[in-house]
């Protein structure tokens, strides 16, 4: 349809803009040279092993993974409950509430981090770990509520009622009939939430306790004092994990489960 040469050129340029830096990072990660450089001196996997030797990076990786996983699971759970309420009780109030739930995504992370620090840590003296979890929950909730409530709105209400007329109690009907229908929405909410929480720097910066680092923050620190391609190697691993993540989700929500061909 759109066979204009200019359009094609713009498309190619955009793709290059996105992918060239990623490819450059990959090259540096496999380069033997001691500094991040495109001058290729030989293939080596030593930077990958160095990632696992660095205590600061591995502990940050563990911490980030566990923090984002817990916060995302909690966020999904809250998102499901909030979506049920928003969809089942329609009206002005629930529209207003939906906008409120989503508003935390509009506040700059640096502001949110600072406010949470002043309020949760300084004023209420809530432990750093809990505060950090709250901060990440706020990052995840907009995605979780937005995607799950949209999914729930598309669901046919009567399938839940049908299950009940066939002998299902209300809670069980929701779990075995409505939740499977929401699988796609929940998985995309999980992915969006997890990735955004995992990548976040500004909120973590304020709320992380002394001596604990989330991965993006630890990487930033590392690059500041080291010039070797360890960070590149770590980036390549994160890319692979992300791709694997997307493939798994695609397989789970893909063609087979809903019977389309």
């Amino acid at each position: 349809m759109y066979k204009h040469r200019g359009l094609k050129a713009i498309a190619i340029l955009t793709l290059l803009f996105i992918f060239v830096p990623l490819i450059l990072i990959m090259i540096t990660a496999f380069n033997e040279a001691d500094i991040i450089s495109l001058k290729f001196t030989g293939v080596s996997l030593k930077w990958f092993t160095k990632v696992f030797k660095s205590r600061s990076l591995t502990s940050a990786l563990k911490m980030s993974f566990s923090l984002s996983l817990k916060a995302t699971i909690l966020g999904i759970f809250i998102g499901i409950l909030a979506s049920i309420a928003l969809v089942k009780i329609p009206g002005k109030l629930s529209n207003a509430l939906l906008s409120m739930f989503l508003s935390s995504s509009l506040i700059p992370g640096i502001v949110m981090g600072f406010v949470l620090f002043r309020f949760l840590v300084v004023k209420l003296a809530i432990p750093m770990n809990t505060s950090l979890m709250c901060g990440h929950l706020l990052i995840i909730l907009p995605y979780s509520i937005r995607l799950i409530s949209a999914g729930l709105k598309e669901c046919d209400v009567s399938i839940e009622e049908a299950a009940r007329t066939l002998g299902c109690k209300p809670f069980k009907a929701f779990v075995i009939v409505v939740l499977p229908d929401l699988k796609g929405a929940i998985l995309s909410a999980f992915m969006m939430g997890f990735i955004n929480s995992f990548n976040n720097i500004p909120v973590s910066m304020y709320l992380k306790g002394p001596g604990m680092n989330t991965l993006p923050y630890a990487m930033m620190n590392y690059i500041e004092y080291n010039y070797d391609p360890t960070a590149s190697a770590l980036s390549v691993m994160l890319m692979l994990v992300t791709v694997a993540f997307m493939v798994i989700i695609d397989l789970l929500t893909g063609k087979k489960s809903d019977g389309r061909k």
Partner: peptide, 18 residues
């Protein structure tokens, strides 16, 4: 509802898609 044991056919059929 779940103890009444009536057969119900809904306007949208309400088949379980999965």
């Amino acid at each position: 509802v779940h103890d009444r044991g009536f057969g119900v056919v809904f306007q949208s059929y309400a088949l379980f898609p999965h």
